[in-house]
Design a protein around this nucleic acid. Structure first.
Length: 587
RNA sequence: GCCCCCGUAGCUCAGGGGAUAGAGCGUCGCCCUCCGGAGGCGAAAGCGCAGGUUCGAAUCCUGCCGGGGGCACCA
């Protein structure tokens, strides 16, 4: 039965074909939500204006012809021509009621499965040498929501956690570990406070690197870089230390993923190191194809149209002058693997916006090398997170704010909120709920603004029970459940009947869910689902205000309204699930 | 210097070439306060500037102003 717009589309197309010729059968009818200030209709069909231009006929005349040829069936209640040629269409309430009733039997609530694709999603992808900070959180949250949504749509999704487990930072860590001694207090920091260990290593590295005259602060930078090449060459002692550090960070990552309900597991780890054996071959192939040349000791690809400062050609450095491989090399390997081996239809890279240029160059190189076949590589750009002062979140000492401190702060806040709103619950129940609420607050704040724009991190706002927040939506589901419980109903059975305008508006909104989810699957924009869910909750609120449910005037109406409540809750719960948010039964 | 993204209400953000640009928070007014107030209804307030394309532009194009980011061995 689908949604009314999907049902209307072919009818308008058929009308246009009948009126103006067969080649109009695939024309976009340009159906949009109606302008409520102009009309009480549900949608407007704007095809007549554009068609009038092509046909050389007045738009209103074209609109009239469409109306005359339109098979209204039992779908269209009313059509009227307005303004320059708008068609204002009102759907039949009986049709909406039947569709809403049918929606209750659909375990995917109107989501129509698109042609099945294989979609590789690279997300989280933190540097295993460092502690995670806010920017990593956003990639993980957005990526996980996309993964859940794509799977809901029936696609074959392959998660790829492209861990940074192979680069210069690991050279620093290993070298620092050797400096302090494997059994020292300094080394134990690696377990208790990995970020402090990293900072210590990083500090020595930058000090040595910037030292004037060269070497005055030691050779830590040079040793670290050499250590990376030893690692990449498979030197035994280096590998052993590398594995130890990596194991610790794997444990750390899994703790974070578990805490935040991110679906990544060890099976999804496909770190940089896993491509190591392919890198020499990639370099050889690029040289053989004449794409890569040596420049200043490094193996580089120079692409047309890429210039850097001073108009000098901008290289993609595939192999560094010290023989090590940077991430251009590993990312060439990833796209080749995802296209030629995994046969991805789409390969998503949910990675920070600043890396856009890098991906453009890597993918163009891969195309020229013939390593992309039938795959659309897509950079899902993640914007920066800034504080309320408009700047990138940093601690007083200038470091990026560690993820854990934000997560802890969010949980502390949500615990306050729950303690305040539900003091009668026992502590253990409150703990569970406040954890779910904290996760919802963090994730929804990340997801509800476009992923490529920066967003302002504001704890107080994101945990609020009012406004466009995750906790608000959770609360909505809990309240609805409470209404059903009050009515003594587990699963209402009666058909949905629509008498009041607020009932009709709610039912219509419920029918939009499938199209919204499908759109998110195409445009990869979870914030559209957030907007929808938030609007649905508000629409429900108006309905609930205007239509008594438990105290409805008769049993038929009561049963119908309970069914609307039940359906709204189910859609909210599933929708939140696609965002990676669990809806508590009570809160 | 070149390239990319972004300037929408007091604040945080939506806005798939269509009619008089929306939401949340905040402010003001009214209503309900009976199913857990997540209240409901309404008001004030805005597309950085200047051109262009179009029947029609917040949306597409150009220039300028302002903000963020990127541009050879970090990822």
């Amino acid at each position: 039965m689908a949604d009314p717009i999907a049902a209307l589309t072919p009818r308008v197309q058929q009308a246009m074909a009948a009126a103006f010729g067969a080649d109009w059968a695939a024309a976009d009818p340009v159906i949009r939500p109606a302008n409520k200030r102009q009309t009480s209709a549900d949608v407007q069909v704007n095809a007549a204006m554009a068609a009038g231009k092509r046909l050389g006929r007045p738009p209103r005349e074209v609109a009239q012809a469409i109306v005359e040829h339109l098979d209204r069936g039992d779908l269209v209640e009313q059509v009227e021509i307005a303004g320059p040629g708008f068609l204002n269409v009102t759907f039949s309430s009986a049709w909406i009621a039947r569709a809403a009733t049918a929606l209750r039997e659909d375990d995917h609530f109107g989501v129509v499965r698109p042609p099945r694709q294989t979609v590789v999603v690279d997300y989280s992808s933190v540097n295993a040498a460092k502690e995670m900070h806010v920017a990593h959180l956003r990639s993980a949250v957005v990526g996980d929501s996309l993964v859940r949504t794509l799977e809901y749509l029936g696609h074959d999704v392959i998660r790829q956690n492209h861990l940074g487990d192979w680069g210069t930072p690991f050279g620093m860590l290993i070298e620092h570990l050797l400096d302090v001694g494997e059994d020292s207090d300094g080394a134990r920091l690696l377990q208790s406070d990995p970020n402090a260990f990293y900072r210590a290593a990083r500090g020595k590295f930058t000090t040595a690197e910037k030292a004037e005259p060269a070497g005055s602060a030691g050779d830590f930078d040079a040793r670290s870089r050499r250590r990376v090449t030893l690692l990449q060459a498979g030197e035994e002692d280096t590998l052993r230390l590398w594995r130890e550090i990596l194991e610790l960070s794997r444990v750390y990552l899994n703790r974070v993923y578990g805490e935040l309900d991110i679906t990544l597991t060890d099976d999804d780890i496909a770190g940089e190191s896993s491509y190591n054996d392919e890198l020499p071959g990639i370099c050889d192939a690029l040289q053989e194809k004449g794409l890569a040349v040596m420049s200043e000791g490094a193996l580089c690809v120079f692409l047309d149209g890429y210039v850097g400062r001073d108009d000098k050609p901008l290289p993609l450095i595939v192999r560094k002058s010290d023989g090590g491989y940077g991430y251009p090399a590993t990312d060439l390997a990833t796209i080749r693997h995802r296209s030629l081996d995994l046969h991805a239809d789409r390969a998503l890279y949910v990675v920070g916006a600043p890396q856009h240029l890098h991906f453009q160059m890597v993918w163009e190189t891969a195309r020229l090398a013939g390593w992309i076949e039938g795959t659309e590589p897509i950079h899902v750009q993640i914007g920066n997170v800034v504080g309320t002062d408009g700047k990138i979140l940093r601690t007083r000492s200038g470091d990026l704010v560690a993820l854990q401190s934000l997560v802890d702060a969010a949980f502390a806040k949500s615990a306050e909120v729950i303690a305040d709103s539900r003091p009668e619950l026992d502590a253990q129940t409150r703990d569970v709920i406040s954890h779910q609420v904290g996760v919802a607050a963090l994730k929804y704040a990340d997801l509800s603004v476009a992923h490529d724009s920066g967003y302002t991190f504001d704890l107080d706002r994101m945990v609020a029970l009012t406004g466009d927040t995750g906790p608000y939506l959770q609360y909505a589901t809990a309240r609805i459940r409470s209404i059903l419980a009050r009515a003594g109903v587990v699963e209402p059975v009666g058909p949905i009947v629509l008498r009041e305008p607020a009932e009709r508006t709610l039912a219509l909104r419920l029918l939009d869910f499938g199209a919204v989810v499908a759109q998110v699957g195409e445009t990869l924009e979870p914030h559209r689902l957030c907007t929808y869910l938030s609007d649905l909750a508000q629409t429900f609120s108006t309905f609930y205000e205007q239509c008594p449910v438990v105290k409805a005037e008769d049993d038929e109406v009561r049963e119908s309204r309970l069914a609307l409540c039940h359906l709204t809750r189910a859609v909210l719960v599933d929708g939140l699930g696609l965002l990676g948010i669990t809806a508590p039964e009570q809160m």
